[in-house]
Every structure is written in structure tokens, then in C-alpha cells.
Design a protein around this nucleic acid. Structure first.
Lengths: 217, 217
DNA sequence: TCCCCCCTGTGACCTTCATCACTGCCCCTT
DNA sequence: AAGGGGCAGTGATGAAGGTCACAGGGGGGA
């Protein structure tokens, strides 16, 4: 594929999925330097502690963002969907800091990767890029606060149901393929607790259970 | 006090507490439009659900930021200290959104209040303002993640000790004036649990307890 | 001074969830 | 077909912390 074609592909993707990125010259800048990247479902994109070199604009699929502490306890934070970006990347990039989070492709996922060094310049040059970045930060802060609400104020049954709903949305499917153990990791809970609560939800007619499979009703 | 004097006062405060705000013209702009504001210890600055009209640059004292859910359960998030600002304000202001948090003066506190409408313009005009805003967002995100770590991974005794340390730092004093009930609210715990854990900490020689008073050792 | 209210301390009991132990089943491999 | 590994279900037990009840003490106000 010729460079010219690639540029045109990126240009089209940006115009389609990021209408708020309005300036024609910014769109063209992105097409100049952005690279289309593909990740398979389950592939790790960025691990805790690694250095970030690109900012991803998500085009297709979804990305799971989670946190891990020193003892290896894990906790799911939120999903990134098409039209969104990873605001943790911005300053990570700009300050050359280690990542505080882990990102994994939830489905097969396509992003446009933008090398760090353009971030800063575009912020001053393009108002719509500045707004995009600011709004991303704000949305992520809100998601983090919702996550805090959930952990601090809710019990496990409600957290589980919220989690299943989000996962269904991220996968565009009411059928979730996951083991109880995987869910337990994401909620920082025990496998047995998740099993029992799922059984409970099944009795209440909220879900239908199968091996490696949960059907949301 | 003449306008001229006020401007000079703000100018001096900015230069002293915000060295990273480097451009002379930006400093002068802040001195033009910024207003010095005072809050008494315990005074509520902004409640959950209210609209934000200024961005505060903190000069002296400290501000407690907390979250509340629909049922009135409360949770302490973090303190803002001199040299910092409330990044939740930025887009709240810019998008005219309701506040998701509550802020209360922890000590007697002085801030420079900057009206919303300058935020945006300065972002493109002054690199150091842009960096300041971006760094603020990043620091707050990190604080929120630390808060999540704390709630998700730690038990109450450790959370309590962390809380006391932070409160001591925010008040510049190893003596904390607070009732067990107030601490319990901040940690979203029960008063009895806090009492028992404090007693435990006293036995371990970590603190000394008095009425309305906790001495950190 | 005396009284009352607020703060603290503590026991008893309950819920939620972690942990341990074990069973049984599905499905894949050989 | 037989075996085995991963997954799900379930009981027993315990720890953390919430809830309820009540006692005691200190300090400020009438």
C-alpha cells in the first residue's frame, strides 16, 4: 500500500470517527503522522510500568483499562470505545513517565497511533485538538469517580451487574464470554463469591449461565 | 485598597507560589482579572451539584475535596494544597457542567479566583498555562487512582493511618482536631470501627488520643 | 454549681465476603 | 474409550466491619 493511500485511509477514519476534530489542516496533520494499528482481542497494548510513546485514537473495537497494585491485585477501571482516547497517555508521554495502568484489547481493535511529540504543538495550534484533549481528561476523571463510587458505596452484587453491563456494551453483545475467575480478577473479588452471586442473579432471572458464557437478559 | 495595590498583591502571590507560570504577560493577565478570596476553616467553597464560575489558584491553607452519593454516603478524595488548582473546575467551567464534588476549606485558606472565560484563551496563548493545566489534570488523575488503590486494596486500619497522615500534612500539624464521627464520614466507615481502630493504633504507640484530638507520633 | 449534650469506649450480634476443601462435569487429548 | 485439566457449584469456617445498645466522662451553658 502506497504512502498516499495510507494517508487517505487515516484521513477518512479521522473524519468518520472524530467529527469534533474539525480543522482540515489538523486532519491532514494526523493523516501525515498517524499510523493505523491493529490489536487482536486479548492482546496487551501497554503494561503497567511501561513507557508510552503514542497516543491512540480508537477507531474500532474497545480497550480495557485496569489497575494493579504491588501484590498483583487487579482492578478493572473502564473501557475505551471508538471516538475516545487514552488521556493517561498525554502527560505520560509529555513527562516521559511510566504508565500507571494496563491496557488490553477487549475485542479486535483498530487505533490510529499518534507519536507523542505532536501532542503539544497541536494543543496551541488547533483549538479543536485542545478541546478534544481537555474533554478526554474530563471524561476519564468522571469515569474514575464513577469507579470510586462503585467500589466505595456498592456491594458486590451490584458491582457485578454493573460490570456485566459495561462488558456487554464494550463487546456489542448480550452474551459475555468469560470465566468466573476472570470476572473475579477484574472486580478484585474471589472466584467463589462471583460464582455464588451469578447463581443468585440466574435465580432472579437476570442472567443465564453456561460454561465460559453469561447471557444477559 | 486601590485597584493598583490589589493587582500588585496578586502579581506577587502568583510569582511566589506559581513559579512555573513563567510568562510575564500571563502573570500580569492573572493580576488583571484574578481576585484574592478568603475562606474560613470549615467553610464550604463549592457543593456537589453547583455550577462553577471560577478556577482557584491556591495560595495558602488547604482544601478538602470529597464525593457524595445519592444516599448521602460521603468519601474523602484528596486535599488541594498551595501551588495546586482544582482541575475538576476546568471543564466544569468550560462545559458549564454541574460539579461532581464538594470542596471545603480545611484550614483558613486564600486563593486567587480566575473567572472561567480566560481559561481557554490562555491555553492557546501561554505555553506555561497550558502545561500547568495539563499537569494539574494528570496529578488529579493520579490522586484518584491512589484513592482507588486505597479503597480497593487496603483494609480500614491502613486507610485510617493514611488518612491521618494526609490530614496532618494538610494542616501542617501532627495534632489533628476531629471527632471519630467526622473521620468515619470521610472514610465512609462506622464511628465504632474508627474508635476501635484508633484505640488499636494507640496501643501500638502510633497515636495518642484525646477528646476531639489525635496526636500522631 | 449542676445538668445535659456530645464524644468516646465497649460488648453482642449480623452480614458480607475471603479462604479452604472437595465434588462433579465438560471437553479435549491421546 | 479413558484420563485429565480447567471450570463451576457448594459447604464450612473465619475475619472485617456494620449495626444496635448502652455506659461513662468532660466541658460548656443556664
Amino acid at each position: 500500500m502506497a504512502i498516499q493511500d495510507l494517508n487517505q485511509e487515516v484521513l477518512n477514519l479521522v473524519r468518520k470517527h472524530y467529527p469534533q476534530i474539525a480543522e482540515r489542516t489538523l486532519q491532514e496533520d494526523i493523516a501525515q503522522v498517524g499510523k493505523v494499528m491493529h490489536f487482536r482481542a486479548g492482546e496487551m497494548i501497554m503494561d503497567f510500568g511501561s513507557y508510552v510513546k503514542i497516543v491512540p485514537l480508537i477507531i474500532k473495537g474497545s480497550i480495557k483499562v485496569s489497575r494493579e497494585d504491588e501484590e498483583g491485585n487487579e482492578l478493572f477501571l473502564y473501557y475505551l470505545q471508538p471516538g475516545e482516547t487514552c488521556s493517561m497517555s498525554f502527560t505520560c508521554c509529555m513527562m516521559n513517565k511510566k504508565s500507571e495502568i494496563r491496557t488490553v484489547a477487549e475485542e479486535d481493535t483498530t487505533v490510529i497511533g499518534i507519536p507523542t511529540r505532536y501532542m503539544d504543538e497541536w494543543m496551541t495550534r488547533y483549538p479543536s485538538w485542545k478541546n478534544f484533549v481537555m474533554l478526554s481528561y474530563d471524561n476519564r476523571m468522571l469515569e474514575l469517580i464513577r469507579t470510586i463510587d462503585s467500589i466505595a458505596f456498592k456491594k458486590m452484587d451490584e458491582r457485578l451487574l454493573d460490570y456485566l453491563e459495561k462488558k456487554a456494551e464494550a463487546n456489542n453483545s448480550r452474551t459475555i464470554n468469560a470465566t468466573h475467575q476472570e470476572i473475579a480478577y477484574d472486580l478484585n473479588a474471589s472466584r467463589e463469591a462471583v460464582s455464588r452471586l451469578l447463581k443468585q442473579l440466574e435465580k432472579e432471572g437476570e442472567v443465564e449461565l453456561g460454561r465460559n458464557r453469561i447471557e444477559l437478559l
